[in-house]
Design a protein around this nucleic acid. Sequence first.
DNA 1: ATATTAAAGACTTATATTATCTGTAATTGA
DNA 2: TCAATTACAGATAATATAAGTCTTTAATAT
Lengths: 142, 142
Amino acid sequence: MKYSKATNYALHTMVYLIALPKGNTIGVHSLAEMQDLSPTYLSKILTKLAKGGLIESTPGVRGGYKVSKAKDSISFLDVIKTVEGESNLFNCSMDHHEGCMIENVMIEAEQNMKDDLAAKFLIEITNKMDEQSINNIKGKAN
Amino acid sequence: MKYSKATNYALHTMVYLIALPKGNTIGVHSLAEMQDLSPTYLSKILTKLAKGGLIESTPGVRGGYKVSKAKDSISFLDVIKTVEGESNLFNCSMDHHEGCMIENVMIEAEQNMKDDLAAKFLIEITNKMDEQSINNIKGKAN
DNA sequence: ATATTAAAGACTTATATTATCTGTAATTGA
DNA sequence: TCAATTACAGATAATATAAGTCTTTAATAT
């Protein structure tokens, strides 16, 4: 069991977007370059984040992406849920699995992880970035 | 991200093995039948659990499997670690990812889930099984 | 000896993820 | 209006992993 690479890229991308000055946008090309990804692939992840309401896009010249919520309100869980989906990590395999006790335990454990991820905000990561990286991103804004 | 079906089958199987009277063994055939699986497939999962030290096997006529530790000492995490492996759910995708702050947060969250799973014991599930199911398993012991 | 059981390895199939390619639509600025 | 730039969408391909089968071997009890 592993988080998808998409989640990985999404989290890093969100940290970058949060580092942008308010109102600025940045294009997929720049975001992809920073992470050594193809723009078309990262584009799909960004579209997902946009549909999930975390970021918004403007097409056309000088368009790009920016966060669409208060920067200090975006949690790890917000991003993960958007990319990975909402279904539980564990689903009982038995034919009659209503109220499976094993499943209940697994769901409860998962909830502990989610509670923690809901209380961790991406802006904390951005705040700890070194100035050089911050300036690098700002320099790529449209 | 999902737990593997193998983990699913392993957890259910362990609950059955814990339900067996001390010292009794049960064969893969019976265990597979109860879960509607092919014996050869379940066999691989059982071999993994055996190598992990959770169960032990005796070949030959009237052989089979039984738990190899104190029944009340086997946690959910023990089984999951054995089947899924020990690696982290999240690994930073960046080139220079030493001390990635995102990864650190993810590992911490995962630890909350693991801590909970380490404190949940399979015998609690077995204890709550209905008498009919218990007797069904006992009837299949070798 | 023979039946029964686990173990191991090679192999196939299925599924999901990752990634690319191509084309379309929207927006800006000259 | 035109051209450049950017996001968006769909089809497809490549890859990795999981799931499952088949066959053979080895161990054990009766």
